[in-house]
Design a protein around this nucleic acid. Structure first.
Lengths: 210, 210
DNA sequence: TGTACATCAGTGAACGCGCGTTCACTGATGTAC
DNA sequence: TGTACATCAGTGAACGCGCGTTCACTGATGTAC
């Protein structure tokens, strides 16, 4: 991954107060965003505790010392990364489900969530499923952030259900989806893994077949 | 926790080969079992990575050096602890469900699994739910052991379903239960937590109401 | 009876390592005059 | 034009700490004779 150096993106602008800025605001914000995006992926792949600050920065061609110019602590990064991850995934799920005709939108969501692709690529998937038990032991602050985004997920489910004119409990549906995905990921052989996905998917279809 | 010292439980027996044993076999096995049992609880409360060998041994009034007289590695302990945890929980669930009259046994299982008690006391609860995302990233060996015990869990569900004369997919049911419990544990406030438990429970009842 | 020796669960210092975090610094770029 | 100085994202050595693991050892208990 060739990373543009600080020198390349450096720009000079003058603030209205007459103070000097050697680097443009965009440069700083870009680096910040790159760190968050990388963390969002790596946290989902290797767990939050499984990704060190140093190795994360190295991934971006940076050194660990610079991390604290962007974040107060790893926990602050975690909060931003989790929000970015949910942004990505919820948007992707929403776009995907929206393509289906009414009556099939929710089913589309379930299909992508309980797909082998989602199972095998946690880095771009549901943050809650990827780190479920770890989140359980995170700080109140982090758990609240996740709760908030899970509420967004529930809203999406309910919105889709409304469009489909289907009556389901969004919480029960989300429980099934995350549980099915998680158990599928625990399974070592592909057959049992797919069986969990399929069984859960079937049960949901039975539930939302109104 | 007052722990009986090595000296107290020490006994002398002579093997048939004429070799000497200063400590009885029971003593060694007892210590071994105590470590496994403590690990089974602590791993579920704090996560596998969240429990160090040293602090675990300290809990039992022992020092960390002695650990390796009992286990080749922390991974070996993990495997034994996970099996002990599943033994405990599956037995408890089975006993509890068996008390119900036919037609209500499976519902009893679901009730205890999705209870606030289970939510608030992971140390004695389902190992898979307590460490779901962490297990996902464990070695093949550990994941296979968990898979094996999850199969036992599925067997229990199917057995109960048969007694109830109910037709359900055990995998879908287990997905709902673990997912519901996990999401409930993520929630910071009790109301939302209970809602997840209740919503999942209701959906299951809808599913198994044959 | 006493002396020499064997057993072995448990001890605790030490190992290398990676963690999150701090901080004096560098160096490319600019302005001031 | 040249010299002095300011800015600040990023550097890298260092901090204390806990991790899993190793290993020479201790000490309570026994047998052998």
């Amino acid at each position: 991954l060739p990373i543009t150096s600080a020198a390349q993106t450096k720009q000079t602008i003058e603030t209205h107060q007459g103070q000097y800025m050697r680097y443009s605001k965009e440069h700083r914000a870009n680096t910040h965003a790159k760190i968050v995006t990388a963390a969002a992926t790596h946290f989902r792949e290797k767990g939050i505790e499984g990704v060190g600050v140093a190795s994360l920065m190295q991934t971006l061609g940076l050194t660990h010392g610079g991390f604290y110019a962007h974040f107060e602590s790893k926990e602050c990064l975690t909060e931003e990364a989790l929000n970015t991850a949910f942004d990505q995934t919820l948007k992707r799920f929403k776009d995907y489900a929206s393509q289906a005709i009414p009556g099939h939108k929710l089913r589309r969501l379930v299909d992508i969530y309980l797909s082998n692709e989602h199972r095998n690529d946690p880095g771009l998937g549901c943050f809650a499923a990827a780190n479920a038990s770890e989140i359980t032991r995170q700080s109140e602050k982090i758990r609240q952030s996740v709760s908030k985004r899970l509420a967004d997920f529930l809203d999406l489910i309910e919105d889709l259900a409304n469009q489909d004119n289907i009556n389901v409990d969004s919480r029960a549906l989300l429980s099934m989806m995350t549980g099915g995905l998680l158990l599928s990921r625990i399974m070592t052989d592909d057959r049992h893994a797919s069986e969990f996905l399929q069984a859960t998917s079937n049960a949901i279809n039975q539930l939302i077949k109104y």
